Amino acid sequence: MVMNGERVELECEVSEEGANVKWEKDGVELTRDESFKYRFKKDGCKHVLIINEATKEDCGHYKVKTNGDESMAELLVQEKELEVYQSIADLTVKAKDEAVFKCEVSDENVKGTWFKNGVEVKSDARIKITHIGRNHKLTIDEVKPEDEGDYTFVPDGYAFNLSAKLNFLEVKIDFVPRQDPPKIHLDCMGRTADSTIVVVAGNKLRLDVPITGDPAPTVIWTKGEKILTEGDSRVHVDSINGHCVFTIEGAERQDEGIYSVVVRNPAGEDTADINVKVVDVPDPPQAPRILSVGEDSCVVQWDPPSFDGGQPITGYVLERKKTKGYRWMRLNFDPVL
C-alpha cells in the first residue's frame, strides 16, 4: 500500500541470471512499449518493476513470470487524507452583530463550498467568503433572524463536511421606569444543553449580557464561589450602554463551567447562570495492551482519553509499523470504537 504520487518498486529474485522474466498487471503483459509508465531494471538475478508516481489507476494485481514459476502481489494506492486542524463551531449572535465561521485544514490548495441548510451560500453585500492558505472563513455582517440555521463547509474532492449552527439571540428590552429593579435580558440562561455557549479552545470567550435598571445596577461575575475580576491578564469585565460584558482571551479547558452574573441597585437584584463549554483537542488514548497474538493477527485493548475534548469520541484510527521500520501504516479507513 502506498500514498498517491509515491514511487513503487516491485522486486523479485530468480535462480538464474539469464532467466526469461515477464511482468503482468491484472493478466495483461507489461511491454517495453509502455516504458513511459513502467521501468524495468535487472541486476544479476534480481528483477525490478518501477512506477515513479503511483495513481489510483495503478491499483491491481501484479505478476512476475519466469520459466516454470511465478509470483504475485497486490498494489493499493491510497488518496492523501485531509486533516482538520480547526473545525467550525456553533455561534449565538444578536441582531446586527457579526457572525464568523472559520476552519483550518491541512492542505492550503484545497478549496471548498459553504452551505446553509443544504443550499450553497453565495457572497453578497453582507456575506463574505474568504480562503487564505489553510484557512476558510464565512463572515455574515449585521446578522438577521433569517440567518439562523445549519452551516456546512465541504472541502472539494473529499467525502466529509464540517457543520455548525448559527443561533439568533433575540434581545427584548422593555420600557424601564425610573427606580426600576435591575433586570437581565438574556434568552440563553440556565444549565441545559440548549442554553450552552460553546467556544473552541484558544478562541475568545465573550459573554455579552443586556441589563436594565434605574439607577444603573452594579454587576458581579462569579464562577462557583470565586468572584471574577480583572486580576487575571486574560479576564476583562466591562459595563457599558446597558450591557455587562465578560471576556476571557484565549479560552482554556479550565474555563469551562457555570458562570453567574448578579446585577444590583437600591430597588432590587437579578441573577442569571450561563453554561460555558470549551471544545478542545482530546487527549490521546491511554494504556494500549496486547491481549493475545495469533498467527496473523492480535487483539489490542486500550482505555479512552481522560479528556474527550468536550464532545463524544466517535472512533479511533489504528496504525502499525515494523519494529525496525520508520513508517507507520494506517490499518482502518473508517474510525472504530
Rank of each mutant, 00 (worst) to 15 (best):
M1I: 04
V2M: 03
E9Q: 10
L10H: 07
L10S: 13
C12A: 13
C12R: 09
S15C: 02
E17L: 00
E24I: 02
E24G: 00
K25A: 12
E29G: 06
L30E: 01
T31L: 09
R32D: 04
S35A: 13
Y38P: 02
Y38D: 04
K41W: 08
K42H: 08
G44W: 13
K46P: 02
L49W: 15
A54T: 09
A54G: 10
K56W: 11
C59P: 00
G60L: 15
H61Y: 14
T66S: 14
E70S: 13
A73C: 04
A73H: 09
L75D: 06
L76R: 07
Q78A: 09
E79Y: 02
K80A: 08
L82Y: 08
K94P: 01
K96M: 11
D97F: 05
D97H: 06
V100Y: 06
C103Q: 05
E104G: 00
D107C: 15
V110C: 15
K111Y: 04
T113C: 14
W114M: 03
V121G: 09
K122P: 01
D124H: 11
A125L: 14
R126Q: 03
I127V: 15
N135R: 15
N135T: 14
H136M: 08
I140R: 04
V143P: 00
K144C: 07
E146I: 08
G149F: 01
D150E: 12
D150I: 13
F153A: 01
V154E: 11
P155H: 06
D156T: 12
G157Y: 08
L162I: 05
A164D: 06
K165E: 07
K165D: 00
K172A: 00
D174R: 03
V176A: 10
Q179T: 12
I184H: 00
H185S: 15
G190Q: 08
G190T: 03
R191I: 04
A193L: 11
T196L: 06
V198H: 01
D208A: 15
D214P: 01
D214L: 04
P215S: 07
T218N: 12
T222Y: 02
E225H: 07
I227S: 13
L228R: 02
L228P: 04
L228M: 08
G231I: 07
R234Q: 10
V235Q: 05
D238Q: 06
G242H: 05
C244K: 01
V245N: 02
F246C: 07
E249K: 03
R253L: 12
D255F: 15
E256K: 02
G257D: 11
Y259V: 11
S260T: 10
R264L: 04
N265M: 01
A267R: 04
A267V: 00
K277T: 09
D280F: 09
P284M: 12
R289E: 13
I290C: 09
L291E: 14
V299T: 06
W302H: 05
D303F: 11
P304S: 15
S306P: 01
Q311W: 06
P312M: 10
I313K: 12
Y316L: 07
K321P: 06
G325H: 14
R327Q: 07
R327E: 09
W328C: 02
M329K: 07
F333W: 13
F333Q: 05
L337C: 03
